[in-house]
Design a binder for these strands. Structure first.
Lengths: 225, 225
DNA sequence: ACCGAACTTGATGCATCCGTCAAATTACTC
DNA sequence: GAGTAATTTGACGGATGCATCAAGTTCGGT
């Protein structure tokens, strides 16, 4: 028991170390392979048994929410700075989107976070929501400047990032090309009437959470005998 | 033995029926759930044991290549007719893409086929290649008419369809919105310089085949006790 | 030094899916 | 109607991944 009479039990040193090792391993693997990487493998890389991971975090979501938000927040801050170096509203908007996309392409964890592949991660959700809000202020400014098409709405960001995430899996840099096409289509001068309205808030919430089955698995021919 | 002396053994009636049932079940499940649906489930729906499926087709790819090409060809033909009802080159191009996208949204098998999620399916590959070639003739015509941006190339179609497939998983009809944004960006009048070149042929081949890990799995919180 | 609490282990159970095999069944020919 | 070869069965083994738990280990206060 702690001497200070506090009721919260102080973590044992070994427990503390386990958590640190798990955290480090989780960051590595989430970044490399996405938020859906095998938990057993995280435990293995941490040099700890799977049981310990479950004892410490309980669920994958808890682990994600413990580890990813800091990372994500830091990266998204970088994007803000990057964006605000531009005085032109359109450039600010475009650079912000582009910078986030760049980071998504090299960090599967961020990519999964931004495309909202997991529920029950309140801290991470908050971080992402903040990033989307920020994006929206840039968007509004670009609209007011008459540069961004007027029918673009907040919920359309998910389209941008979803497309980017998908493109990033094709080849190292093509997503930049895909994004360029889209950005050209987002300029006010390029706008033609849209066939359908944006996601309503329910759909957006659903899309941001459920992520209805993004089709898994490498399509490589399976091992044959 | 056949009486006509041919060496090719005629399939027994039950074998023939098994194949038909498997084919029908495969079409249903591929369409509903994509080309990566469990083979056991196809066998179950066909009212046949998994062993039979493997005996008849050997590999998932063989099954795909046996049943999907007809379906895909038929649908892609529909798209051609749909497109050619338009005399304006841009409309022809845009409608073709849009029609294929529509069908992809309601048919997971077609979606997987067009985004090339499987290797070792020569017949299916041929069908898709043909569709891409057709798309490219429409694209060229639209470029010659000065409507489609000049820096658009064949390999960019994969970007369109990949984005669509990803968007289609968000909500029933948003992909139309995403596609509209992109198409607006593809008009010659909207073109700004592109940051990177297109996929080279190797990358294209790789992207068309390997499909490097499209991130699987529903992200729903797992069942807890 | 000891004792109880906290921590960790790793084996275990569960579930999903793929691919194979010997055995049983079926259909076709004579 | 019987023989035989093709066909089908369905249980099996292997692989992956999640989650749990009893048992053993280590810590830290007294």
């Amino acid at each position: 028991m702690p001497t200070d009479g506090s009721t919260r039990p102080v973590l044992r040193r070994d427990a503390q170390r386990s958590i640190e090792k798990l955290t480090a391993a989780a960051i590595e693997l989430f970044t490399e392979r996405g938020l859906d990487c095998p938990l057993d493998e995280i435990a293995r890389r941490a040099g700890v048994s799977p049981g310990t991971l479950y004892h410490r975090f309980g669920t994958r979501e808890a682990l994600i929410d413990a580890v990813v938000p800091e990372l994500a927040a830091e990266q998204l801050d970088t994007a803000v700075q990057y964006a605000e170096a531009n005085s032109d509203p359109w450039e600010r908007f475009a650079r912000y989107v582009e910078k986030i996309s760049t980071m998504m392409a090299s960090d599967s964890a961020l990519s999964d976070a931004v495309t909202r592949r997991y529920d029950d991660t309140p801290r991470l959700s908050a971080v992402c929501t903040e990033a989307f809000d920020r994006a929206w202020t840039y968007a509004e400014q670009a609209q007011e400047a008459g540069q961004l098409r007027a029918d673009f709405v907040t919920g359309d960001f998910i389209l941008l990032f979803t497309a980017n995430a998908a493109h990033a899996r094709l080849a190292p840099d093509v997503w930049r090309r895909g994004l360029a096409f889209i950005l050209d289509g987002l300029r006010a001068s390029a706008a033609h009437p849209l066939p359908v309205g944006p996601l309503d808030s329910d759909q957006l919430a659903e899309a941001m959470h459920h992520t209805p089955e993004p089709h898994t698995g490498t399509a490589r021919a399976r091992t044959r005998r």
